[in-house]
Design a protein around this nucleic acid. Structure first.
Length: 497
RNA sequence: GGCAUCGUGGCCGAGUGGCUAGGCACAGCUCUGCAAAAGCUUGUACAGCGGUUCGAAUCCGCUCGAUGCCUCCA
């Protein structure tokens, strides 16, 4: 039996503003669409947090036994920097600055995006479509919306008629806005405008002669509006109605609002059952954003080459840090917070290693100090409550404590329970949270381990000769290098910090 | 100005009408040749002011403060 049948999942739906029981449209199958990056510069850490949240969600849904089709797009068509049609296309701008072809920009940063996500141990999505690969689909939707009367053409551009749409449907229901308020609060209207109303948004933009990224259309050469690609690709791969649509909080308005409008105008019904929004990562208390320069690149964290942090942190530590906060909460990045997470992460990993080496007792019925089955359900309850990873991690540390007590012989556990606990720790830590054991398996590490074992042996010899000067020298100098020796009942182990 | 979210102990961060979140740091103890690691113990937190309630950090109102969106942004 699939796990999801016994583990009811609740998700916070931005559309209703409440936690709802998750019931996919087709039993056993989940369709999930997440707005991907615009590839005109390196992914910064804030971007990564959003994708990591949905990676975790993807992992958990799969773990529950759902067959998930996860679509995450790449926005590789340039979009204007402002909606008034005055800004420059971001990708074209970058291409001009770097004196390369726009598609070179796209390629470069798509590769960068994938490299970074791989370091963070992301699972690849099921489909990763590009906007430029779906121009035809986008044009078809525009034609459809035009036919239904919810859009109009002006000078080779096509705009979505928000006010008209609002007479039949409800524009603003996702972000809690009312069109009347928006109209009332419209900022001073600069003359320009092919748009009938300031709230209208572009479905298709006419390309000026110097614009490189351009495609032919019934309205002349141009390029698609930003909101349209997601509607086109989600519909194509997940259908007119699908289960989960995710993205960053900052996309809620106008992007997701416009997606809903486009889909409803075209199909006559809502496209998405559950809207999930991941919250922002802040740096120094401010939102990380490419446009403000307040950001840090993942590689700058991994290498330690930055002016914000005191040292380098591994991708898994960063991932653990992020998983310690709920995905719907704002999380602030700081050196102190990362340092604290790193220590916790190491403790967690060592407990898992310890557990693997332990042996359960065969005979005596182990005392019920720690009931693995009850603990298991607590972990699931946490995840079932809108993917509450911080609470899951709290439970994991409960197990860490028990494992350390077992190691010291202060608790006993049946082999059956030990094996179950080991399996569950692997499931939650590696499969669901997507963490990775650091230092796994490279041959250099194996050799280092052998060398350290040798030093431990020398130190023990010195200690038994009561030559503490030598033994402490070995211990302290290893510590300086960043190798910590830990004496336990069954000998000495070590950690590379 | 409008809409929204949030304000938790030294730091990070869950929770949300009565029952210990957790991590990190700090202190004491156990262990240790001394340490470290590990374990045990301790911390009387919920922005402020009112209100509802037998009971509120949790619900309501107001005030203050922070952030996000309202223009591209995960």
């Amino acid at each position: 039996m699939q796990l999801y049948k016994s583990q009811p999942l609740k998700v916070y739906n931005s559309l209703s503003g409440t936690k709802e029981l998750f019931e996919p449209i087709n039993e056993g199958h989940v369709g999930m669409y997440v707005c991907g990056p615009t590839v005109y510069s390196n992914v910064h850490l804030g971007n990564c947090r959003t994708f990591m949240s949905f990676d975790m969600i993807f992992r958990y849904l799969r773990h529950l036994g759902y067959k998930v089709r996860y679509v995450r797009n790449i926005t590789d068509a340039g979009h204007l920097e402002d909606d008034a049609g005055e800004g420059e296309d971001k990708i074209a701008k970058k291409a001009r600055l770097e004196q390369i072809e726009p598609m070179e920009v796209v390629q470069r940063y798509t590769v960068d995006f994938h490299e970074i996500l791989q370091k963070f141990n992301f699972l690849p999505p099921s489909i990763e479509p590009t906007a430029t690969g779906h121009i035809i689909e986008q044009i078809e939707i525009i034609k459809d919306i035009l036919e239904k009367g919810f859009a109009y053409e002006t000078n080779g551009s096509v705009y979505f008629d928000v006010q008209k749409f609002n007479t039949t449907y409800e524009y603003g229901k996702l972000s809690g806005r009312k069109l009347e308020d928006m109209i009332a609060n419209t900022r001073e209207l600069t003359a320009q405008d092919e748009k009938r109303n300031p709230q209208d948004f572009a479905l298709w933009k006419k390309a000026e002669p110097q614009h490189i990224m351009r495609w032919p259309s019934p309205w002349g050469d141009g390029f698609p509006g930003w909101h349209l690609e997601c509607t086109a690709m989600s519909t194509k791969y997940l259908g007119e109605t699908f289960d989960i649509h995710g993205g960053g909080m900052d996309l809620k308005f106008p992007h997701h609002e416009c997606e809903i409008a486009q889909a409803e105008a075209s199909n006559g019904h809502a496209p998405v059952k559950y809207w999930l929004h991941a919250n922002m990562l802040t740096l120094n208390g401010r939102k990380m954003a490419k446009s403000t320069g307040n950001n840090i690149l993942p590689n700058e964290i991994f290498t330690g080459e930055n002016s914000i942090l005191s040292k380098a942190f591994s991708p898994s530590v960063v991932r653990f840090f992020m998983m310690q906060a709920h995905y719907t909460s704002i999380l602030d990045l700081s050196d102190e917070a990362l340092l604290a997470s790193e220590k916790g992460f190491i403790r967690l990993m060592e407990a898992i290693e310890t557990l693997e080496k332990l042996k359960g007792s065969t005979s005596q019925q182990a005392e019920a100090d720690f009931e693995v089955t009850a603990w298991r359900q607590k972990c699931y309850d946490a995840m079932n409550d809108d993917f509450n990873t911080p609470v899951l991690i709290a439970h994991l540390f409960e197990a860490v404590k028990q494992i350390n007590l077992l190691k010291e012989g202060k608790r006993s556990i049946s082999e059956e329970d030990r094996a179950l606990l080991q399996q569950l720790m692997h499931v939650f830590v590696f499969d669901v949270l997507g963490l990775e054991k650091k230092n796994n398996g490279s041959s250099g590490m194996d050799k280092l381990a052998d060398v350290v074992q040798l030093l431990i042996q020398l130190r023990n010899e010195a200690r038994s000769n009561r030559d503490f000067e030598t033994s402490d020298k070995i211990r302290d100098q290893l510590a300086e290098i960043g190798i910590q020796l830990k004496d336990g009942k069954e000998g000495t182990s070590f950690t590379v910090l």
